[in-house]
């Protein structure tokens, strides 16, 4: 890679790549922890609201916001993946090859994360929050 970019753009680029790799997984982790703990703790304590917000609403937020996060990561990872197509030679620039590998990993991770969040959202649609 002969092209040079400013150090700030390079820093942002590096961070964006990591967001593309881990953004979806982080969103899903937030979704999973928030939705589960809200549901289990509120229901065990016999509440059907969370500080005034109905439980269903709180859980919906815990699905929708992470879903948005995972989608954003997915978009960045697709962009990165398309722009980092490795050169045909196996011994092409290894930094590009490495970054492309990370983009592929991120792309798939984001897809899975989004799938899990959506699956969880479906469960929230089907099951009343405190039914046992």
């Amino acid at each position: 890679m002969s092209e040079r970019v400013s150090s700030r753009a390079a820093l942002v680029g590096g961070l964006l790549l990591w967001f593309a790799v881990l953004g979806g997984a982080l969103s899903w982790a937030v979704h999973s922890l928030a939705a589960w703990s809200i549901d289990e703790l509120a229901c065990e304590a016999g509440h059907d609201d969370l500080a005034g917000v109905p439980l269903v609403g709180a859980i919906a937020l815990a699905v929708l916001l992470p879903a948005a996060g995972a989608t954003a990561a997915l978009v960045v990872s697709v962009l990165a993946w398309r722009r980092l197509r490795p050169e045909p030679r196996e011994d092409g620039d290894r930094a590009t090859g490495r970054a492309h590998l990370l983009a592929v990993v991120g792309l798939w991770l984001n897809l899975l994360a989004l799938a899990m969040i959506v699956f969880g959202g479906v469960a929230a649609l089907v099951l009343p929050p405190c039914q046992r």
């Binding site: 899990m116 469960a123 929230a124 099951l127 009343p128 929050p129 405190c130």
Partner: peptide
């Protein structure tokens, strides 16, 4: 005997981790 919805979230992840 936790709320079924709590199970739902983990059921989702447990299903997807197969992929």
């Amino acid at each position: 005997g936790l709320p079924q919805l709590s199970y739902g979230f983990f059921s989702a992840a447990s299903t997807v981790i197969t992929i």
